[in-house]
Design a binder for these strands. Structure first.
Lengths: 137, 137
DNA sequence: TTCTCTGCAAATAATTTGCACCCAT
DNA sequence: ATGGGTGCAAATTATTTGCAGAGAA
């Protein structure tokens, strides 16, 4: 059950890291295809799953949409745009939340938590304002 | 664009409220079918969408799985079980998080946030321990 | 050699949509 | 009488899986 390093796995991981973004499987597929045109989307899915199981990348399950993947695995939180669905890191002091303080709740054994902000990103905000200006004329 | 009250809408809402749970569309469909056997799953989806748009119920998009719906619309947070995927309310002091303190981040206009805990619920915890005991024998 | 990985196509899961008819307002 | 709502089936979206061959270790 050991994980082999294949060229597809290597490229998928590198492309995610180089992107400095929180990409979806198909966004990553489009990027990887430029380097390795015969790769299949299933391979991208399978590798992202393996890599996140192995703790090499993070899997973001945010806002009930497509999963996104994150090459940054240190604990941090995110914000997503309600308009374009992009996801960014957000600076939030995780010391403010003490999981053990709520640990007795409902008898759950708590293993983690995340704080997920939502809003409108600056790009969409600008577009929305432009559209409103147009409406007025 | 006004919302009509139909018998299906009424029953869907009532069943969700009476359940005191965070149900998925198809769980609710199964319950409603017992009262109104010819209702379709699409109707359940459409009504849950309308009701949550109207702010009458809440939509929970948690852990990258099926959406769940909540008849309790006052701001509160949740915990879900990694084993059985049930969702429960969790008591967490939302005053600890100050959205405006992170508002400048990346230029987002923040409109809300949620804190999502994960863990193992007491039922699954008991089952896992029982299974382990079995393994040892 | 062994066993994981791959590409392809088909399958699945969750949700949405087109359409003709129904019914609340 | 309007125009939103409904049931049904088909379509869509995101993801997973079976299979036979490829290729790391």
């Amino acid at each position: 059950m050991h994980m082999r390093m294949t060229s597809q796995r290597e490229i998928i991981l590198r492309e995610l890291q180089d992107s400095h973004q929180h990409l979806t499987a198909d966004e990553l597929y489009e990027r990887v295809k430029k380097i390795m045109p015969r790769i299949s989307l299933a391979t991208v899915y399978r590798n992202l799953e393996k890599l996140s199981e192995a703790g090499i990348i993070g899997k973001l399950e945010i806002s009930g949409r497509q999963k996104r993947f994150d090459s940054d695995i240190h604990p941090h939180d995110h914000i997503y745009c309600l308009e374009c669905h992009r996801v960014d890191n957000i600076e939030f002091d995780r010391n403010l939340v003490n999981p053990t303080a709520v640990a007795s709740d409902k008898g759950y054994r708590i293993s983690g938590y995340r704080v997920e902000f939502k809003g409108i990103c600056s790009t969409c905000w600008a577009m929305l304002n432009k559209r409103e200006d147009g409406d007025k004329q």
